[in-house]
Every structure is written in C-alpha cells, then in structure tokens.
Design a protein around this nucleic acid. Structure first.
Lengths: 335, 335
DNA sequence: CTGAAAGCGCTTACAG
DNA sequence: CTGAAAGCGCTTACAG
C-alpha cells in the first residue's frame, strides 16, 4: 500500500501542497483559515498520513540521523553507552544508527563511509588504532564528529573522555597504601591512548611511591584475551598467591582474570585483592564483590550528544575535550 | 563544505547528469565511450564524490535502513542479537537503526512511528505486551516486519522463534530425572507468550512425571527483579536448601537468583542445582559453571534478516514462523 | 554513444 | 488568506 503524501491531502482537501505543508508543520506567519486548517488535519487523519522524512531531509539537508561507531555493540560497556546515547538522542529528535568496528580500521572506514552516505547529521565514534587519517578526512569536510571513550593524538576532534591517567594514578595509590607484596597491572598491548594513559597513571604512582613495590605487568593482545590472561597469571601469581593485588584496566580483562581466580580457588580478598576499570553485570556473580572504577556513562552520553548537537547546528573546528571523572566504587574485593 | 553532487561532476566533465549516473552506477546497456567513463571517474575522484543515499532513497523508495526495536539494547541478550543482525544486515547493504522500548507499548509505538517516518525498509522487533494493535496497523499497511525472540497471538506477522515450550519441557524432564526433592521455576508475571510457553513446558513435564515432584513457582514483576527474586527465594528455598533445583526462565532472573545463592553461601550443585535460559558473561564468574539453554543467535539473526529481506523485495502477508531449537549446554551447576 | 526531462515528497521564498 | 513554482540530488524511460 502506497502511503499518502502531502499531494494526496492537497488534492482531497482542495488546497495547494504549500498550504498543507504550512498547516501540518504549524508554521506561523501564514494566517490560514481555521476551517482550512481543520479540513487539512481531518484529511491527514483519515489518510493515516505520516511525513516522509527522507523527502524532508533532502530538502533541508538534515537527516536527523546520528551514527554511532563502537568497537563491538555486544560489549557491555558499549551497549550501555549506546543505551544512554539513545535516550539523549531521542529527546533531541535524533535516531541512532549503529555499527561495530571490531577494532579494525578498514571496517571503521567502511562504516564511516556508509553512514556519511546515509547523510547522518553527525557521528559519535570510539576510534580504533590507525584511524587517524580517516577521521582527519571527515574533519576536513567539516563533518560534525565527537569521539567517545577514546581519543587520538593529533586529530583535532572534540570528544568526551575519562580522566584516565588521574583516576589510574589515585586508585593505584589507594592500592599502594594497602602494602601489598606484589601489584600486578593487567593491560593490553595497544596503541590506544586511553589505555596507555591508564598504564601511565599506574606507573606514575608506582614510581612516586616511597616504599619498594614489586610491580608486575601482564600485557595481552586482543585475539585471545582469556587464554593469554590465564597463561600469564599462572606465570606471574601462580596457584597460591599471597598479599597480592590485581589491577585490571578493562572489564573484559577483569572477567578473564577473575575466571582464573575462580578456577584455581584463589580467595578474594584473602589471597588476592582486585580492582578493575568499568562495570559489568558479571561482577555480581563473583563471590567477592568487585571494586571497580565507574565511568559516568549517562553524563558522558549527555555531554557527547550536546557537543555533537552543537557542532551540527553551528560547526566550528575544535578539539574541545570534556573530561569527566571516574569514581572508585569500593567493595569487598580489596582487603 | 558542501559535498559534490552528480551535477558538479557533470558540469566539470562536460557531460549530462544522466551519463554520470549511468557510469557511476555501472549500468549496462548504455554503451558509453571508454574515455567519457574514465573522465567521469577521474572527476568523481578529485571531487571526493560520494552518492547521497537520501536522494536515491527518495527516488527508488528504498532507504536501505532497517529498524530494530528491542526491550533494552543494554541487555546482554539483545545486544548480542543486535550484533548478529548488524553483521547480516551489512552484508545485504542495510544499516541498522535501533531503539529500546523498555517493555512499554507507548514507547514502542513512538519508535515504530519514528522508524516508519525515517522510511526504514523493514523492521525487526521484539514486541512488548499490549502492542498487538500497533503491529496490526503496520501489517495492514503491508510494512515488512519480522518479530524476533517474542511473538504475539493473533497478529499475522512472520517471525523467528525459539522452540520455547519443547525445550522447556525436555530440559525440565532432564531435571526431573535427577530426582530432586524440590524444583523451583523462576519466571515473570507476564503476558508475553514466549515466557508463558516456557512455563507451560515446565508445567507439562512436571504434570506428566510419574514420580511425585514438589514443584514451586516464583513469579516476579519487571520493576524490581533482583529484590523480588531474593525475597521469594528466601521464602521458598531458605538459607540452607537441600537437593533442590532452580529453573530460571531468563538470564536476568538467573543472575538475580545466583546473587542470592552467593550471598547466602549456598553451594552449587551440592545443595542447589541450577539451569537457566540464555547466556550471559556473568555465568563465567559464578563458582560453578552454569548449565544453560543456548539460543542460536547467529542463526536467528540470519533467518530474521533473510525473512525480512524477502518481505521487502516481494511483500506477501504471511505469519510464517521459523522455529529454531535451543541447546542445553550442560555444565557443573547440576548434580 | 549521449542528453533532456520528469519525478520521488517535501520546503520555502515570493507573489498576489 | 492561499498558491505557483523552484529546488534538494538522484534515477530512469524515452528520444535521438
């Protein structure tokens, strides 16, 4: 069934399409007769008329579509971000189109191209390693863009970010003060700046410490997180660790590490204390509630959408970064 | 910066827009001179031309957009579905626009309206209670639509579904054979058919059983799942249950229930055995690996997209349901 | 081998 | 108080 158009309404109501458009969009300054208005609304109603936004988009060059590119929408962290963004976007009349990059620059570029062809009004992206040029090209075209979660050195894009270095530093200090024999940082081998910043924060606290700390590092790739974490933990803390702290730089790493602890019946916090970046529902089922760094997702979404909406309505090249603070949520996983 | 249009290319290459369109879309049957083609490609390249899909959409009445409405995109189950759908959709040249209904029929309708105005070519929806009329209206307009995860009685929509009743029946039987003193079904107070089917399957197995089974039911609302589950479990199994089995009809319920077990140091499977519908990463961190019913998400996504794509290219009113089988993944949580 | 022209469903400056 | 007309960026049947 073909849907009714403004033309159909005009024909049936016996007026011009212009008048219909004015009335339906409630444009002021076109003093149109009350009875004409009423007639138009009636006809629109009986025809079940709904506007074709595609046509409107073509005309005003605004699609009311926002593109969201994350690493993987099935990841807890990103699906929560997506949910928060969805809520905020909807309030401003935008709908979200989503894509997962799988940390792959080529796929990332394909999504950017696709979304740009779909004429999204702006994009919110979690950049992947090696996508600097892709983003730069977009910015050169004055495309409204906001980065989220991550940020790239040398790319002049606005974004909302976490105070990764600072929160890593203070939370590491918190661990140091507990006088562990050994503190293990579990992170990714990566070029992603936000992760490097977490590591730098950790390193800084360790270095500044007056006491002597045995700091170890477990660094894994993205391919086989669980397997690598387990193998490395075996080497670094073994089956029967004592007075040791684990610092996980992401929820995925934490889940992998906690799995190891479970399998080897290592007690938390009696033998090992645990601190992790980011939340995940999984923590709920670990015998000891996990101490974690909570990112203010709702606020992030809010700021990201605001930033983007501003860019859309009034583009200005800027690399304005909004930095939000993580919160350490202290639970029983630390002695 | 305004993006280049086909018109710009035509002007610079000194040909007509029609020719440009033919060449860039590689339309056959328009034997166009090789040098003209080359010229056009060159100009397109230097202008960084990318097609405006909005304009194309308006012309051929195909937006290449698919709407996905789930209860909540931040829920593990739905974000996994979304991810699988995204992959399949991309392969067919579609992009996904998403919305969360929060189990709210009004919000569901708003999303339907919005997506329909955005001219999505079709929708994949997990219906909410009370949305029968909304979907029926859509179907009356011959809107391509596929339901997923859930299904509504009396609405003539195609969909892909799980064999909820059967899998619930056989898995309950599996529990019954283990001779528990008590079997507790944990479900939702709901009108959602797929959940009722799970319950019916459970009830059927209990009823058919030759042995006498003490079957109990914990039914909770959607408002405060965790709180209600904990309170009811306290009443039904107490702090020190023995030879009891818990049958959770969703992963959310399972997480809530397992939390209760953890908090009360109830041993799985020594005291209580556990079986749950659907996966979630959280199971990984429970001391005993959880036995669960795995839905074939990838296959579901595949079938849903195929069904929808078929409806889009050749609409036929149908209530064709594709039923896929769940798999019981047996782990250590059952004695 | 190529182009002029209509049309997709809207919006909006202009005219009356 | 209302309408004729141009135009957004494409596609495509038709003509030559």
């Amino acid at each position: 069934m073909k849907r009714a158009s403004i033309k159909d309404i005009a024909r049936i109501a016996g007026v011009s399409v212009a008048t219909v458009s004015y009335v339906l969009n409630k444009k002021e300054g076109h003093r149109i007769g009350e009875d004409t208005k009423k007639k138009i609304f009636e006809v629109a109603e009986t025809l079940n008329y709904t506007p074709n936004r595609i046509a409107r988009s073509l005309q005003n060059n605004k699609s009311k579509l926002l593109g969201l590119i994350v690493a993987d929408i099935s990841n807890d962290f990103y699906s929560s971000i997506a949910r928060n963004l969805e809520n905020k976007a909807l309030k401003l009349g935008y709908t979200l189109i989503i894509g997962s990059s799988d940390e792959n620059a080529e796929k990332f570029e394909k999504l950017i191209d696709l979304f740009s062809q779909q004429q999204v009004d702006g994009m919110i992206v979690a950049p992947v390693a090696g996508c600097e040029d892709i983003l730069q090209k977009l910015l050169d075209r004055n495309y409204p863009l906001v980065t989220i979660d991550r940020y790239l050195k040398g790319v002049n894009a606005p974004g909302v970010i976490l105070n990764n270095r600072e929160i890593a530093e203070t939370t590491t200090q918190f661990l140091i003060d507990k006088k562990f024999d050994k503190i293990v940082y579990v992170g990714y081998e990566t070029k992603l700046q936000h992760l490097l910043d977490r590591q730098k924060g950790f390193e800084a606290s360790v270095k500044d410490s007056t006491s002597d700390i045995d700091a170890k590092y477990i660094m894994v790739g993205l391919e086989n997180i669980s397997g690598e974490v387990h193998a490395e933990m075996e080497k670094v803390i073994g089956k029967n660790p004592k007075n040791t702290a684990l610092y996980f730089s992401s929820n995925k790493l934490a889940v992998a590490g906690l799995e190891y602890l479970i399998k080897n019946s290592i007690k938390v916090p009696q033998q090992v204390s645990v601190l992790a970046f980011d939340e995940t529902e999984a923590y709920k089922l670990f015998p000891a509630e996990i101490t974690y760094i909570k990112q203010p997702l709702e606020e992030m979404a809010d700021e990201a959408i605001k930033l983007l909406d501003f860019q859309i309505s009034d583009y200005t090249a800027t690399s304005k970064k909004i930095t939000l603070s993580g919160d350490l949520i202290i639970k029983k996983s630390i002695k």
